[in-house]
Computed example of a mutant assay.
Amino acid sequence: MAISHFQQFLDQATVFDPSNDGGLGPDCLYGLYVSWAVLRGLEPKPDQAFRAGMHRCGIDLADSKLRMTGPAAADYILYSYPAVA
């Protein structure tokens, strides 16, 4: 069975951290997803489709326990906080 677009995002741009209280919130996670999609040359899905995809992947957006990682994390941070660059 093919891995979903959203599962690929989770595998490539996030790390599950059970000790992380809360983790990435829905807005931050969506921003990371947009960075991931753009870096891969993909058109990001709308927020509503993203939230549904996260639900199908078993991610609780209110308590994701996810950390960002990889090139999408760097892109997201630089885009969100340009003073850091």
Rank of each mutant, 00 (worst) to 15 (best):
11 D>A: 10
11 D>I: 06
11 D>F: 10
12 Q>G: 14
12 Q>K: 12
12 Q>A: 15
13 A>T: 03
13 A>I: 06
13 A>V: 08
13 A>R: 04
13 A>C: 13
14 T>N: 04
14 T>L: 05
14 T>H: 10
14 T>K: 03
15 V>A: 14
15 V>F: 05
16 F>G: 00
16 F>Y: 13
17 D>Q: 12
17 D>T: 14
17 D>M: 07
17 D>A: 12
17 D>P: 00
18 P>Q: 07
18 P>E: 06
18 P>A: 08
19 S>N: 10
19 S>R: 12
19 S>Y: 05
20 N>D: 11
20 N>I: 07
21 D>F: 04
21 D>A: 13
21 D>H: 10
22 G>C: 08
23 G>N: 00
23 G>Y: 03
24 L>P: 00
25 G>E: 02
25 G>I: 00
26 P>W: 00
26 P>T: 11
27 D>A: 08
27 D>S: 09
28 C>W: 01
28 C>L: 13
28 C>E: 10
28 C>A: 14
28 C>T: 13
29 L>V: 07
29 L>E: 01
30 Y>R: 01
30 Y>W: 03
31 G>C: 00
31 G>V: 02
32 L>W: 01
33 Y>S: 09
34 V>G: 02
35 S>W: 01
35 S>I: 02
35 S>M: 08
35 S>N: 01
35 S>A: 15
36 W>K: 05
36 W>I: 08
37 A>Y: 02
37 A>S: 14
37 A>G: 07
38 V>S: 03
38 V>M: 11
38 V>K: 15
38 V>H: 07
38 V>P: 01
38 V>G: 06
39 L>M: 12
39 L>Q: 13
40 R>Q: 14
40 R>H: 09
40 R>N: 15
41 G>A: 12
41 G>Q: 04
41 G>F: 07
42 L>D: 08
42 L>K: 12
43 E>P: 02
43 E>S: 09
43 E>T: 11
43 E>L: 10
44 P>L: 06
44 P>S: 04
45 K>P: 03
45 K>G: 01
46 P>T: 05
46 P>L: 05
46 P>C: 06
46 P>K: 11
47 D>P: 05
47 D>T: 13
47 D>V: 11
48 Q>E: 14
49 A>C: 07
49 A>P: 00
50 F>K: 02
50 F>M: 06
50 F>C: 00
51 R>T: 03
51 R>N: 06
51 R>Y: 04
51 R>H: 07
52 A>L: 15
52 A>K: 15
52 A>T: 15
52 A>C: 10
53 G>N: 08
54 M>D: 04
54 M>I: 06
54 M>C: 11
56 R>Y: 11
56 R>A: 14
56 R>K: 15
56 R>S: 13
56 R>G: 04
56 R>P: 05
56 R>Q: 15
56 R>M: 14
57 C>R: 09
58 G>H: 10
58 G>L: 11
58 G>I: 13
58 G>S: 11
59 I>E: 02
59 I>N: 06
59 I>M: 04
60 D>Y: 07
60 D>I: 10
60 D>W: 08
60 D>S: 10
60 D>F: 06
63 D>E: 08
63 D>L: 09
